[in-house]
Simulated assay, not measured.
Amino acid sequence: MGDSKDEREKFQEELIGLDPHDPETKAFAEHLDRMKRERPGFTVEGYLEGVQDFADSANRTTGHQRLLAVIVVGLLLLGVILTIWFALGDILSIIF
């Protein structure tokens, strides 16, 4: 998190008794910030922030959770590639 006073005081109640300079406390405060952040859900920016959160979470995980994230991304890419392939096939069949 940043050093501004508002950001430090935002989660004061949840962080009572914890060392503010401890890396685990900072990570917990960042987690709380991500959980309580409100973003527009029906805009391109909102969707992209959701994808960024997913990518950041996937990069922090290890083991089975990371494998599952890689499989989800792979399936999404496979779906996009198949959609483009079939669309190009239809376009080429119409033209020729």
Rank of each mutant, 00 (worst) to 15 (best):
R37Q: 12
K10P: 00
L15E: 02
I71W: 04
D22L: 00
K36T: 15
T25C: 01
T25N: 01
K26M: 05
T43G: 02
G63W: 01
A69Q: 02
K5L: 14
W85H: 13
I94G: 09
E45A: 13
G63C: 00
L82G: 04
I94P: 01
R8E: 12
A58T: 04
E24Q: 13
V80P: 00
L88Y: 06
K26A: 03
L48V: 09
P40H: 05
F11A: 02
L92V: 10
V51R: 06
D90I: 09
T83V: 06
K10H: 12
R8V: 05
A58D: 02
L88P: 00
L76M: 15
K36E: 13
E38L: 04
E38V: 13
E38F: 03
F11D: 06
E9C: 06
D90M: 09
M35C: 07
K5M: 14
M1W: 04
L32S: 04
D56V: 10
L15V: 06
H31I: 07
R60P: 00
M1T: 12
R34W: 05
G46E: 09
D22C: 02
E14Y: 08
G50D: 11
Q12F: 08
D33L: 09
M1Q: 10
G74N: 03
W85C: 07
G79A: 10
